[in-house]
Write a protein that binds this DNA or RNA. Structure first.
Length: 192
DNA sequence: GGTAGGATGGGCT
DNA sequence: GCCCATCCTACCC
């Protein structure tokens, strides 16, 4: 399966809000599995109390303050791992949560990793689901996604789509900020 | 079609 | 001790 080139570090070396929007349609590749990003959320540094980075550098959040183009993966509710991509220049906090992907390669393997999913659309339609489908875990935390076993690539061919913007899901702080981006009409999003 | 409740563990006050 | 950037099952229309 041939995709386009790996996204360069400069793709992530800017506002996490711009990056979140532009990540739609890009391809996450991990081993024999690959999936297109259809839903993201931006978590800026600074005054966004919803961001893990809001309380400064800790053992957990240091990756978010590090160089762009790396994975920030954390455990949520004691059960699921969530994948973020670190943005902004080194020293500045900011990341993009990957909330949903559309499977494009290794579908049989993903189905086996997601026995609870009854339909294809449910395999990776949520931040905890997609890490299971793609076999991404906290062991991948801090990984450089511009090289190595976990990378993000341009799609093989570009498709036109409309982008929808909404508040982020499942947060209470800064709930009015429009920082969630999704491909309008795509059936693999976590919710419409 | 819909949702209430529980599983489960790390981070931080 | 409380708070989660969640998911699944059971149960109810």
């Amino acid at each position: 399966m041939a995709f386009g080139p790996i996204l360069p570090r400069d793709f992530y070396n800017r506002s996490c809000i711009d990056t979140a929007r532009d990540l739609l349609g890009k391809i996450i590749v991990h081993g024999p599995t690959a999936a297109a990003i259809v839903e993201t959320e931006a978590y800026p540094g600074g005054d966004d109390l919803a961001s893990h980075s809001a309380r400064g550098v800790t053992l957990r959040t240091q990756v978010i303050f590090g160089p762009p183009g790396h994975a920030y993966i954390y455990l949520i509710y004691g059960m699921y791992d969530c994948l973020n991509l670190v943005c902004e220049p080194e020293g500045t906090a900011g990341c993009v949560l990957i909330r949903a992907v559309e499977p494009v390669a290794g579908l049989d393997l993903m189905r086996r990793r997601r026995p609870a999913a009854r339909k294809l659309e449910d395999i990776a339609s949520g931040p905890g689901k997609l890490t299971l489908a793609l076999a991404i875990t906290r062991a991948d935390n801090g990984r450089d996604v511009t090289r190595g076993p976990l990378v993000v690539r341009e799609p093989a061919e570009h498709r036109r789509f409309e982008i929808e913007v909404t508040p982020r899901i499942g947060i209470t702080h800064c709930a009015d900020r429009l920082l969630r981006f999704l491909i309008r009409g795509n059936r693999f999003v976590s919710r419409s």
